[in-house]
Each structure stands twice: as C-alpha cells, then as structure tokens.
C-alpha cells in the first residue's frame, strides 16, 4: 500500500521513553497534521522517521510503501523518497545551496550518470521564484547566517527540488511572521497532489489555515490521543491541549 505507516512505535533517548505506542498512516495524496504541546514527542517522531542516530526505536515499526524504513540508513531513506523539513536546519559552512542541492539530486542518479546543468538551474530558479527567493541565494552557503524565515524557505525549496514521495514538515511554521508563513504555505500547497503524502507537525493551529489538512492527529505524551478531520484542529485550538489529554486514557489508533 502506498502510505507512510507508523505502527505501535516506541522511541527512547538513553533511558527516557519519548514516543510510547504511536500509530498513524499517511497515504500518498493526503496531508496529515500532527498537533501537540511542547514535549509531546513530535520532533522525536520526525527525527526517528528520518533516521537520526541519537534516537532508538525500542518497539514498533515504520514502513514506507510497505518497505521497512528502520532497516535503512538515513541517506537511503531519503533517496527512496522520504524528506524531512527540519525545525532547526543545520548550517553547512562553505557549501552553496546550488552545490548542496546538486549533490543531493546527483546522489539519486545511477552511477556514472551526470546531471544536466541547464535543466537543473532552470528548475532551481523556477522553484525559488515560487518561494519568493532571490537568485543570488544559490551562491550562499546553506543556512549560514540565514534568518529563521530564510531557513524555512530553504527547507521548502529543497522539498520542491527533491520531489519526495513523503514529506515530514517539522514545525515549519515556527518563527515565521505571517508573510513568510503565507509564502511557505504557498510553496507547500503548490506541491500537494496525488504523488506526495505530507505529515505536517505543528504546535499551533495557525498554519492549518493556509495548509488545510485532510486529517488531524493530536499527540500527547508520545501517543496519538485523538484523530479527526480538519475541524479537530479548530476544536483543539478552542478547548486546549488539556481537553485532548483528557482523552488520552486509551490510545487512539488511526486507520
């Protein structure tokens, strides 16, 4: 089945259990939002999907189109179609955005095959325009000295260039003013469609006004405690996370 699927996932850092029996599934073509308060394990979920070495899956599984993701190295996962937009993207000093993205795309080609430079730049400039980025950005080092908004835009630029099957957006809205938020949302919306499944992780409902999800999950203490349609986000906004916690006695399995 074409979906990004998490089943009964348990994740620990050291001795501390962060994710405790989380399950959800994002089919290709849909946008799912995971909402949760600070410390609920949202970012852990994002990082463990991408294969961050600090997190250990103690139980459960993650599959992408039925393939076991946890058996793959982080770069293999990415080449097979998973993308993580980081909440706090790393700086890569001295490596320009153009060279960085070129290396990422090159790594998806069979050995010996070279990328066509003109096509590459045409596509890069097109996506930058979509995100309101100046072309001079291509020669800046990745995230070095970038403002919060510039970093998030660069994440979405990478998403647009790499065309993954599934994208996990980890608090892409945090630290953005309303104009930057709209631009980023516009970028994400333009990528929506039957070829991509998106998992949007956020603390606030605000971004969901601009990227309207098909499903909303509420995550508390390492589990999904409620799932519903887009109206769940508004209800949560109104009632607060305590209301969601009250329903946490029984873990809610989705799908």
């Amino acid at each position: 089945m074409n979906e990004l699927r998490v089943e009964n996932l348990h994740v620990a850092i050291g001795d501390q259990q962060i994710v405790r029996g989380l399950s959800l599934a994002v089919p290709r073509g849909e946008v799912h939002a995971v909402m949760g308060p600070n410390g609920s394990g949202k970012s852990t979920l994002a990082k463990v999907m991408a294969g961050h070495p600090d997190y250990h899956v103690t139980k459960g599984k993650i599959t992408m189109d039925s393939e076991d993701l946890l058996a793959l190295e982080p770069d293999d996962r990415a080449r097979k179609g998973l993308f993580l937009a980081f909440q706090y993207p790393s700086e890569v000093p001295g490596v320009t955005i153009a060279n960085f993205l070129r290396a990422a795309l090159q790594s998806r080609l069979p050995e010996g095959e070279e990328m066509e430079a003109t096509e590459y730049y045409a596509k890069l400039y097109e996506k930058m325009e979509l995100l309101g980025m100046d072309r001079s950005f291509t020669s800046r080092a990745v995230n070095e000295g970038f403002s919060g908004g510039e970093k998030k835009r660069t994440e979405i630029l990478q998403l647009a260039m790499l065309e993954p099957k599934y994208a996990v957006l980890d608090e892409t809205d945090s630290g953005l003013d309303i104009d930057a938020l709209k631009t980023v949302a516009h970028g994400v919306n333009s990528l929506r469609g039957s070829k991509i499944g998106i998992l949007l992780i956020t603390h606030y409902q605000r971004i969901l006004n601009y990227i309207v999800p098909d499903h909303v999950h509420v995550m508390v203490q390492g589990r999904i405690v409620r799932s519903g349609g887009k109206e769940l986000a508004l209800e949560l906004e109104e009632r607060g996370y305590d209301w969601a916690r009250a329903g946490a006695d029984e873990p809610v399995l989705t799908r």
Binding site: G51, V92, V95, A103
Partner: peptide, 28 residues
C-alpha cells in the same frame, strides 16, 4: 554530527557528505 545527519537526510551518502563538508570548510 548534526550537520552530517542533515546532509544524509537529503540522500547524500556519507563519503559525498564528508567531501562536501570538508570542501565547504576549506572553501572559506
């Protein structure tokens, strides 16, 4: 390590990521 993970999360294999990081370091 975080920088290395960031590059790998883009599909860049470890040797290529290492080369990029080093050339970037020297490029300054």
């Amino acid at each position: 390590e975080e920088e290395m993970f960031y590059l790998r999360s883009r599909g860049i294999p470890v040797p290529v990521a290492q080369r990029l990081i080093v050339t970037g370091f020297l490029n300054e």
